[in-house]
Write a protein that binds this DNA or RNA. Structure first.
Lengths: 286, 286
DNA sequence: ACCTCTGTTTCACTATGTGGGACGGATGCA
DNA sequence: TGCATCCGTCCCACATAGTGAAACAGAGGT
C-alpha cells in the first residue's frame, strides 16, 4: 500500500467506470466490429444474423450510419466501412495520444530510476522517439524527441518487433541491415529471431552494449485495446549504473510502467483484479 | 429522363433512404465528430456544452465508449479518440471499397466512350492505378491494375493534385521531377501550379500528349463524404479519337461518372462546380 | 475554512427505440 | 410462365430503455 502508483492515486477526480451501458451503443459497436472483420462487406441479412439484432433494428442503424457517411453500400446492397469512419482519428495523430497518456507514467519511472526514459513507436521501418525524459545525472544517455533509430539494434525497437504480427515483423526484418557497431552487436537475422523469442518469453527487451559500448537499455511493450503492439517504453543508462544485478529491478519497473500505459489505452489482459460486476438493471429475454 | 444512369436504375433492390433517424446515433456521432476536431481531447463539460447534450447523457455515452476502447482518457479526464476507433477500417483497405463502388460506373463510362477507363488514387508520392477497364479498340492506351505513375504528368494525378489541401499538395510537388518527355510536357513548377488552378476552375484535368506523343487523357476528381479528394477517374485514348472537338463531350461524361461515384461515397454537394467553401478551422480552445 | 468547479450516481418518467408483421420487387425453381 | 421464396423497406402499438434534474463526492482555488 506504499505510494507505488502515483499516477493512479493522483487522479481522484475520476472514479471507477460504473455507468450503465447503453443498449444502442452496444448494438452499433457490434455492427462496426463485425463490418471491420468483413472486408468484403455484408448484407443486411447477414449483419442481423451475426449480431443477433432484429432485422428492423439493424436496418434503422445501418440506414442512419449510411446517411451519415460512416458506411457505404455497393450496388448489391452490401454495407462497407465508409470514408468518415476511416478518417476518424486521422486528425489527431495517434502517437500524440499515446504520448499524452504515457507522460505521467514516464515521470514516475524517471523518478524511480533516475535514468533516461524513452517512449518509442514504429514509424515506417524505424523506431520514432515519441517522447523522452533525460536522466538528471551528468553522465547519461541522451536522446531527443523526434529522433529515429534502426529497429533491430535498440531495446525500444526490439520490444516492438517481438510483439508485431509475424508477417509485418518479417517484412521489416528484410529491410534491416545488421551493422556490427560493437562486439555485442547482433549480426545475423537468425540470431535476432532467437533473441525476439527470448524477449517475448521474459516480457522485456535488453540492449546490452549492442549499439554503443557502455550503454544499456531495457524496454517493454505497450499494447492498445485491440491487443496490438502500439509503442514501447525504455530506461537507458550507462552500464556502470545498470549492471547485471540492477537489470531485473529495472525490468520490473519498466514492464510495470508499460502495463499501466497499456491499461490506460484500454488494453485488458487476464483480469488483473476482480471481475466487473454485471450491474444488470433488469433481467430480460432468453 | 432517358436511361442515363444505368447503375442507379438497375439496383431496384434498394429504395430511397427513408428510415427514421435514431436519436442515440445522432448524439454519438456528434461526439465522434467533435472529438475528431479536437486533437487535444475534450472534458466531459465541454463535450456536453458543444454537442448540446445533457451532461448525464454525454457521460453515459462517453463511459460506454471508453470501456469499449473507442475512447481513452488522459489523467486530467479529457476524452480522446482511442485505438479501436483509429484502427477501424484498417483491415479492409479503403481503396478496395472505392474500387468496388466505382466498378459499375466505370463500366457505364467504358460503354459510353469505348476508351480505356482508369481509376487512380494517391499512394505515397505517386498515383496508384486501382482499377482499369481497357478499350475494346485494337489501337488503345493500355494500363494495368497496380501500376504506378508520377503524379505531375498524368491527368489522373493532376486531378488529385488540384483538389488536395494546399499543404499536402506543396509537399508532394517538392518531390516531383519534371521530365521533358514530349514537347508538351510541363517542366516548370510554376507552370504546373497555374495548370492546377485551371483544372480546379473547369472541374477536370487533361493530359494532352504531355507524357506520350499521341496519347490523351481526361480525368475528374472523386470526393468522399468528408469532402476530401479520395480518388480520380480518367478516360484515355489516342488523340486521333480524342481530338479537341470530342474532349468536351468526354469531359462531361467523366465528370458525371466522378460525381456519381462521389455520391455513392456519401459526398453531398449542392453546387456541382462552384468554389469550395473555405472550411475554416478553429484556432484554439476557449 | 469557505465556495465552486469538476465527474459520478440515482431514480421516476415518458419519449424513444423496438420488433412483429406487411408490402413490393427480384431472383430461383419447375 | 407461374409459383415460391428471398430480400430490403416501411408501419405502428407497446413497453423498454434512455433521459435529465437533482443530489453526491472529491479537487482546487481563494
Amino acid at each position: 500500500m506504499a505510494g507505488v502508483q502515483h499516477a493512479e492515486l493522483k487522479t481522484g477526480r475520476l472514479r471507477r467506470s460504473g455507468a450503465a451501458p447503453v443498449g444502442v451503443l452496444t448494438k452499433v459497436l457490434s455492427i462496426f466490429e463485425l463490418l471491420d472483420r468483413a472486408p468484403g462487406g455484408l448484407q443486411l441479412r447477414n449483419i442481423a444474423d451475426q449480431t443477433g439484432l432484429n432485422k428492423s433494428t439493424a436496418y434503422r442503424f445501418l440506414a442512419h450510419l449510411e446517411r451519415a457517411g460512416y458506411l457505404v453500400r455497393d450496388l448489391t446492397g452490401a454495407y462497407l466501412i465508409g470514408p468518415r469512419l476511416v478518417h476518424l482519428g486521422a486528425n489527431s495523430t495517434y502517437q500524440a495520444t499515446i504520448s499524452r497518456l504515457s507522460r505521467p507514467v514516464m515521470e514516475d519511472l524517471w523518478r524511480e530510476t533516475d535514468e533516461t526514459v524513452n517512449l518509442g513507436a514504429l514509424d515506417g521501418t524505424e523506431v520514432l522517439y515519441i517522447d523522452v525524459l533525460e536522466s538528471p545525472h551528468h553522465f547519461r544517455l541522451s536522446s531527443q524527441k523526434g529522433m529515429r533509430r534502426a529497429i533491430n539494434c535498440t531495446a525500444l525497437g526490439k520490444a516492438v518487433l517481438a510483439w508485431l504480427p509475424p508477417a509485418t515483423r518479417d517484412e521489416l526484418l528484410a529491410h534491416c541491415k545488421f551493422e556490427k557497431r560493437t562486439p555485442h552487436s547482433i549480426t545475423q537475422p537468425s540470431e535476432l529471431l532467437a533473441e525476439l523469442g527470448r524477449i517475448q518469453r521474459r516480457g522485456y527487451a535488453v540492449d546490452n552494449e549492442e549499439v554503443e559500448t557502455g550503454a544499456c537499455c531495457v524496454a517493454a511493450p505497450i499494447f492498445d485495446s485491440s491487443g496490438l503492439i502500439a509503442a514501447s517504453i525504455s530506461v537507458a543508462g550507462p552500464v556502470t549504473r545498470m549492471g547485471h544485478n540492477r537489470i531485473p529491478t529495472i525490468a520490473g519497473l519498466v514492464t510495470g510502467a508499460a502495463a499501466r500505459i497499456s491499461r490506460s489505452l484500454g488494453y485488458k489482459e487476464a483480469r488483473p483484479e476482480h471481475e466487473r460486476p454485471p450491474r444488470s438493471r433488469k433481467a430480460r429475454r432468453a
